[in-house]
Design a protein around this nucleic acid. Structure first.
Lengths: 215, 215
DNA sequence: GGTAATGGTGACCAGGTGGTCACTTTTGTA
DNA sequence: TACAAAAGTGACCACCTGGTCACCATTACC
């Protein structure tokens, strides 16, 4: 497999990106099983054999493409966690907007991720999702522990439920942003950045009331 | 089509239920496109032609099965809304538990619904989802308006965002209940009813802090 | 110019899909 | 018992799928 991918990596940048982007679009539109290799090569105008030389098989193509994209997702979150700024709610807001930025940059990848969430039979699903889940939980736990210590969050807070609430609200916010049909018009207009920021602030305030110290 | 379904409705109850339950399982396990009519009839031990006599085609089977289940879902929610009890948060709690009960009664149907949410190409998807969404939004808007009037909710609350927050928290709660893998161990043990009730109470309290009047 | 390595091709394959229909079996009725 | 209506059957169909591989084209190197 390493040799086969080598072939792909030797390709001119332009072609490599075209292949990846067309394949990503196909998976985002149809999920894994319903995605068609024939359609991909058809749109690319290359022979089917080429794709199989590059990636071995359909699953190889998917794993390459998805793994590539995931690595880009981890960086911005780490930056936020490592930011020395102590304000819990500001960090929440920044995490929200980091998600928005990621979706803007890779809308198709995010759609694939959403499908993966609820459609059991993706390749690598279990492996990948547990990784994401653990990372996100660990990230939020650290932030919440921080917030409690600094007195920004209630003392009687159950950390596990707090993680659950933050996860729920943040995920749904991003889901609505990526798929406006989920919540009607509440988050519909992608183009208007300031509207999104306002909504993100409102969500942050909701969390502040829900978790914050009423002092 | 009406004549064809007549044939199915004339069947002995036991067989009719077996057909429906086996088909439901197949769709819940594999989604719509990946579901196989061959597997269904194989497990049922009947000829393929029979299924097509009953429902015309694959989509007919799915619509029949899903529409049937959906009608059962609307009843309990209506009961809660029509309950004269005025307490907003108690109603939230009851809605949560009504969802839990529905999932316990029809776990496969709920899994199909979740797949439908994020996998665009189900038949009837748009029609059905907008119906659900509008119903749920309308339901929550009424409850929230009620809660504001009675002074249980803040005056400065933006109703649309409040609807969004309630929807987000409640949906995620039910999703975690139906698919424990979503939130790690937070809601894992289905068997323990009192644990679920406690979590539902905690969620209600979170909403109370987030939306409630701090008086 | 010769030659080897690499990239690219598309007809072809086995297997699965939803769907059909001429046919047989069972049932209800008089 | 006779006959019609309804239920049930499974071989068959066209189509699409992921995947293969013998062959061709292009490039790089001496």
């Amino acid at each position: 497999m390493a040799t086969a991918q080598k072939t792909f990596e030797n390709l001119p940048d332009e072609k490599r990106e075209r292949v990846l982007s067309e394949a990503t679009r196909e998976f985002a539109d149809h999920g894994y099983h319903q995605a068609s290799v024939n359609r991909i090569v058809g749109r690319l105008g290359i022979a089917k054999g080429s794709l199989f030389k590059y990636f071995g098989n359909k699953q190889g193509l998917f794993e390459y493409l998805f793994g590539h994209a995931v690595s880009q997702f981890k960086r911005p979150l780490k930056e936020i966690r490592d930011t020395p700024s102590g304000d819990f709610f500001e960090r929440m807001y920044m995490s929200l907007m980091a998600g928005v930025d990621f979706i803007d940059a890779h809308p198709l990848i995010y759609r694939i991720y959403l499908k993966m969430l609820f459609q059991e039979n993706f390749p690598m699903r279990e492996t990948f999702l547990t990784e994401v889940r653990q990372a996100s939980t660990k990230y939020l736990r650290a932030l919440i522990a921080d917030g409690k210590e600094s007195g920004q969050l209630r003392n009687d807070l159950d950390p596990e439920m707090a993680v659950f609430h933050c996860n729920a609200i943040m995920d749904r916010f991003l889901q609505s942003y990526a798929m406006p049909s989920l919540d009607g018009d509440t988050l519909s207009d992608k183009a208007d950045r300031t509207t999104i920021e306002t909504k993100a602030r409102a969500v942050t305030e909701f969390i502040r009331h829900g978790l914050g110290n009423p002092s």
